Computed example of a mutant assay.
Amino acid sequence: MRFLPVFLDLQAGPVVLVGQGELAQAKLRLLLAADARVRWFATDGRHDVSRLDAAAASRVAFADGDPLTADLSNVIAILCAGAGETGHAVAARARALGIPVNVMDEAAHSTFIFPAIVDRGDVVVAVGTGGASPVVARRVRERIEAMLPARIGDLASFAGRWRDAIKSRLPDVAMRRLFWERVIDGPIGADVLAGRASDANRKLTSIHDPVAFAASGGEGIVTLVGAGPGDPDLLTVKALRALQDADVVFYDDLVSPEILDRARRDAARVPVGRRVGKPGIGQDKIHRLLIEAA
């Protein structure tokens, strides 16, 4: 993985757009959809915002000077689309100033790339291929679009509104995660996804003891997952869900790194079993570790 996916706060400062034509227009629409403030250097001198509504157009500042000499001191990112050689020169200046820059379809001149985006309000999924194939990224995005519930963003917003209140009542991180798993996966989450937000709020308000609610899921469980021939694409849906829900993953040398990469990023990973050239810890020891972890 060469490019680390990050989410840029576009309220932190203006974004500079350099370019012209439909390519620049497409980037402009994308930026404005994220509520960005845009400073646009139109390389053909035409700042066409006729297709934007008044609110969006008000966030576009027309820049008539030279982007190679303009003051960029408060700029958080620079985008070049349809800018030709000017884009290359702007990119070199941005690099020298330490400003993130993207030149459309030219990774060699860019310090970041644009992913294919799934936008569900507060739920945003970014799919990238390191700039190698935007078409592949779009196809993956289409599959994700088909999988996600229409109101998944509403569910994230619902949880966000309650986040501080629950955090103050549940300072323990692990217990708080259990609480939210029960909320998201249970009837409250189902209410939000079905458009019954008022019912969801009522049910969450009625939880007087969040610790007991979080713990009511029962004791910890141990799930045995078969890794098959080692191809992560052959994992069952249940196996993938178990890996992504697990707090601790025990594995041996027969489990490929690609399979382990499907586990939750913050899950503990414990190697067990026989390793090449070394004796194994024994099945009884493995059983004890599983019981202790559960």
Rank of each mutant, 00 (worst) to 15 (best):
R141W: 08
S73R: 10
V237T: 09
A294Y: 00
P279Y: 01
Q11E: 15
A227T: 04
V118K: 04
R182Y: 14
V16S: 07
A156L: 01
H109S: 13
H88K: 06
A227S: 10
D199L: 06
I259T: 02
S216Y: 04
P14H: 05
P257H: 12
A70N: 02
G82Y: 01
V248W: 02
T69I: 07
S110C: 15
G273N: 11
R139I: 15
F213P: 11
A63W: 00
P187L: 15
A156P: 05
K238V: 03
R141G: 11
L204F: 09
A263F: 01
D119F: 10
V123H: 06
I207K: 00
P5L: 14
R138V: 14
A246E: 10
F114H: 06
W180E: 05
D119K: 12
P229R: 12
L289G: 12
M147H: 04
G160A: 14
G273H: 05
D35V: 00
D191S: 13
A246G: 06
K203S: 14
G153P: 05
V49F: 13
A267S: 14
Q25F: 04
D119A: 13
T69M: 12
N201C: 06
A156E: 13
V15D: 09
A92M: 09
A294W: 01
A227Q: 04
L28Q: 02
G87C: 10
V124A: 07
A61N: 05
A294I: 07
V101H: 08
G273R: 04
G87V: 01
G277H: 08
S58H: 01
G186F: 12
E85N: 03
P5H: 11
R274E: 15
L290E: 14
T111K: 11
F179N: 03
W180G: 08
V140E: 00
R196D: 12
V276K: 13
R39K: 11
A63V: 06
G21N: 06
F114L: 15
A174W: 05
D252V: 08
S216D: 15
F179R: 01
V18S: 07
G45M: 07
K27P: 03
A227Y: 04
V124H: 11
T111P: 03
Y251M: 14
D164W: 08
R120W: 04
V90R: 00
R37V: 10
S73Q: 13
F7A: 15
I207Q: 04
P100C: 04
D35G: 09
L79T: 00
G131A: 11
T111E: 13
A174G: 14
R265W: 13
Q20V: 01
V136P: 03
C80W: 06
M147A: 12
L8G: 13
V140M: 12
Q20R: 13
L254W: 03
R163W: 12
G128V: 04
L17F: 02
T205F: 02
R163H: 14
E258P: 00
P271E: 03
A190Q: 12
A83F: 10
D172S: 05
G82L: 03
D199N: 13
A126G: 15
E219C: 05
C80K: 07
E106M: 05
R141M: 11
A194G: 13
E22G: 00
G195M: 07
A81W: 06
D66W: 02
V222N: 07
A246H: 07
L28G: 05
Q244T: 02
N102V: 02
L52T: 07
V135A: 15
